[in-house]
Simulated scan of single mutants.
Amino acid sequence: MIDDYAKAHLHGELREVRESVLSKLDGLREYDVRRPLTPTGTNLLGLVKHLSTWEARYFGQVFGRPFPEPLPAWDDKTRRGTDMWATEHETRAEVVDRYRRVWEHSDATIDGLPVDAPGHVPWWPRPGVRLFDVLVHMIVETTRHVGHADILREHLDGAVEMDAESMIRRGQDAAFWANRHAEVERVARAADPTGT
């Protein structure tokens, strides 16, 4: 009983956080979903592509159910990091659609296996895993990248997880955030009297 509950609960969490990833693309122009927003080139569409690649591996190859579309080999050092950005030939729709196809494939694996089903992750130091381990790992990985996406999106247009209407109802308009930013800056400077 607890196994069924745990699997259903974890699967529900994964589904929710996946949708959150895609919501970060909503309303942005093509350049903004692709542009590098950190020194290492992190961008919103690249996060979606990266999650798609790794979720396809974890719920595919690990459990002997390879994703039916080509994936770069996980140990191909010449391709390392290329899953973190979309080329000019990959459209947003293609990247998003592929992520959704990965979800379908992953969901079939999750639905079809017991939570203690064994798998093999050759890139982990202890490669013997259970479906439970991979579910937790993918929730953590996806949530971590949603956090990145939250910050990138806020940097682009100020959007945060709450919609503008709920922020206004709570008194958090642009002036509120400008004052908050100024206060945090003041505190940071006060904590570092050397100014370096």
Rank of each mutant, 00 (worst) to 15 (best):
M1I: 15
I2P: 04
I2F: 07
D3C: 04
Y5P: 02
A6S: 06
H9R: 14
H9S: 13
E13P: 01
R15H: 14
E16C: 11
V17I: 14
R18Q: 09
E19N: 06
S20L: 12
S23I: 06
D26H: 11
D26T: 11
E30H: 05
Y31D: 15
Y31E: 15
D32M: 00
R35S: 14
P36N: 03
L37P: 01
K49T: 05
H50I: 04
L51F: 05
T53H: 08
W54L: 08
Y58R: 00
R65I: 02
P66V: 03
P68V: 08
E69P: 03
E69N: 06
P70M: 11
P70K: 01
P70F: 07
P72T: 07
A73I: 01
A73C: 02
A73E: 04
W74P: 07
D75E: 08
K77W: 13
T82S: 11
M84L: 14
T87P: 03
E88C: 01
H89E: 15
R92G: 02
R92T: 13
A93D: 14
E94G: 03
V95M: 04
R101A: 06
E104M: 10
H105V: 07
S106W: 01
I110E: 08
I110D: 05
D111C: 13
D111W: 05
G112W: 15
L113V: 08
P114K: 11
P114S: 13
D116G: 07
A117G: 12
P118R: 15
G119N: 00
P125I: 12
P127L: 01
R130C: 05
L131K: 10
L131C: 05
D133S: 11
V134E: 08
L135V: 09
V136C: 11
H137Y: 10
V140C: 09
T143F: 06
R144N: 09
H145S: 03
A149M: 12
D150G: 09
R153S: 05
R153A: 08
R153T: 10
H155A: 15
G158C: 04
E161I: 01
I168E: 13
I168V: 13
Q172F: 08
Q172H: 10
A175M: 02
F176N: 05
R180F: 09
V184I: 15
V184C: 00
R189L: 13
D192N: 15
